[in-house]
Amino acid sequence: MTHAPTRKPRLAVFKFASCDGCQLSLLDCEDELLTVAGLVEIAMFPEASSRMQPGPWDIALVEGSITTPHDAERIRQVRRDCTTVVTIGACATAGGIQSLRNWGQHEEFLRCVYARPEYISSLSTSTAIAEHIPVDYELRGCPVNRQQLLEVILALVAGRKPRLPAHSVCLDCKRKGTVCIEVSRGVPCLGPITQAGCGAICPSFDRGCYGCFGPALQANCGSLTNHFLDTGSAPKTLLPLLRNYNAAAPAFREQSDRLEQLAQAVSGKVDSAVE
């Protein structure tokens, strides 16, 4: 139950390495935006308004991952300035698609992309916010689900914990009546190991879940990977499934590393066969 607040909670949105899509989910709450604006004071939201007010803030929505030494310092300041820190989206919660750099040659990338790489100051990794500071709530997804975003804001305003599912996408597929495409068509689908929250969209459009909400609680990623391999998927075709938006989430990372080794072993065999 809402207690009459003495003042509206002050909300700030911070951006790190990201595409801004998750922040836009907030602006995308067209019907509800006015209500939200009535419940909180949007004190800093560069994507929406150039009017920026100084901290401290009650609620921080943090988008994006940490990819530069400067950002690594800046996020610590955010933590100091904000009572509740909510990370939003796959970048902030797992490092995002840009965490693919974690497997690459950082220096080489810099040389290829920038004429004067010596002016670039970046880290060789893209990491989740929670690897740098304690985080109060995590909103998964690429992008986040706007209903979940609203739920978090409403819950924090009401002084309760947000209701965020910890179950797999499969449960939501079944509630919707969506037939399991993994079983009925043999489409590799990350649903069984992916946290729900998206509304199980992809399988209802005949597309395997690509895990944009990251690993579910206690996800048994090893078993699912084994199953895909046993039913004829090649390691190199499975690799991109696990290594995308949530590539750096530990449960996914562990299996993609394993697949990479397997793929190398296979290609090694192929190479020697060709020779």
Binding site: H167, S168, C170, L171, K174, R175, C180, G191, P192, I193, Q218, A219, N220, G222, S223, L224, N226
Partner: peptide, 14 residues
């Protein structure tokens, strides 16, 4: 069994 079980809820849903 837990080494294979995905705990995905499919069996209970169907």
């Amino acid at each position: 069994v837990a080494e294979r079980c995905l705990s995905c809820t499919n069996c209970t849903m169907v």
